[in-house]
Design a protein around this nucleic acid. Structure first.
Length: 277
DNA sequence: TTCCAGGGATATA
DNA sequence: TATATCCATGGA
């Protein structure tokens, strides 16, 4: 166990597998900000405040049980890192981002977020999501929740273009419609391949976005999302060259199996933070 | 000014 | 099945 609870606060003792900045800055989540020494994260309709204190991480949340699951605190990352470090290429990335964890985010929120992320850069993704939540999110008293499906369904393509989605506005509107009409999001017990095919029927969701949804929304461990950074990772990894991102993703997950998602996250962070081109 | 960003849809062969 | 082109937007 890497955490305890005291006075309603979560205390993470093992900071060798919990680094706030690394977790937030590894491209899996975009709604957070740093104020003084406190990091504020809003996930779904829950707010979390994180800070370092006496060599521990203190988490204050409006919903403690939610936060324990969200930050994946029941999972020990040391065995995962040990296995990954048997591969020399991955070792340096694991050491560099050793406090990274994979968050357990709300699937609907992840679908919306990563449709917006396509062919986009992280600062602009953050801006769009902030405008989205500010305008459609329920006021939780000091912070806005991530908008609910029904609230998003009231707005049209023009609105989403106004807050900056560009050509992704149409995809988002059509996806919202499809979910509202009963498209199943209860994919936790689905095998990865079936869940991926299912998700890829949504407008704006291709292989890469689907894999991000599977990893960040359903904690499927056998996916390796290939974006522009991970294409460079693949180039350097030592497997036979591939032209398409799909084949790179297939090759990586075949090689790394249930460690794929974790490996991808350490490697993405290492390449992007060091601007390895 | 051109290039790029956690890519996807579409047309074409 | 595989490749080429287009797509908004803002920062570098």
């Amino acid at each position: 166990m890497i955490y305890g609870i005291q006075n309603g606060q979560i205390i993470v003792f093992d900071t060798s597998q919990f680094d706030i900045r690394q977790i937030l800055d590894s491209g899996q989540v975009f709604r957070y900000q740093k104020l003084e020494n406190i990091y504020k994260i809003v996930a779904k309709n829950v707010i979390c405040h994180l800070k370092y204190e006496n060599d521990h991480v203190i988490i204050n949340s409006s919903d403690t049980d939610f936060a324990i699951n969200y930050f994946d605190l029941e999972r020990d990352y040391n065995p995962i890192k040990e296995k990954l470090k048997k591969n020399n290429f991955i070792t340096k990335a694991v050491d560099y981002g050793n406090g990274i964890r994979i968050l357990n985010q709300d699937p609907f929120e992840v679908i919306v977020t990563f449709i917006i992320s396509a062919n986009n850069n992280i600062p602009r993704i953050k801006g769009i999501l902030n405008r989205l939540c500010e305008s459609l999110g329920e006021d939780m008293g000091g912070h806005k929740a991530f908008p609910r499906l029904e609230e998003m369904a009231k707005r049209d393509e023009h609105f989403y273009k106004q807050i900056g989605l560009g050509y992704r506005a149409e995809y988002l509107v059509r996806t919202i419609d499809k979910i509202r009409e009963g498209f199943s999001l209860d994919l936790y017990d689905w095998d990865t391949s079936s869940a991926r095919k299912h998700l890829m029927t949504l407008p704006g969701v291709g292989r890469k976005v689907a894999d991000c949804i599977l990893l960040f929304g359903y904690h499927k461990e056998d996916v390796f999302p290939i974006d522009t950074w991970c294409r460079r990772v693949y180039r350097d990894f030592g497997l036979p060259p591939q032209k398409s991102c799909e084949k790179m993703a297939d090759a990586m997950s075949q090689k790394l199996k249930n460690l794929s998602g974790y490996a991808q996250q350490y490697l993405f962070y290492y390449y992007r933070d060091n601007k390895i081109l």
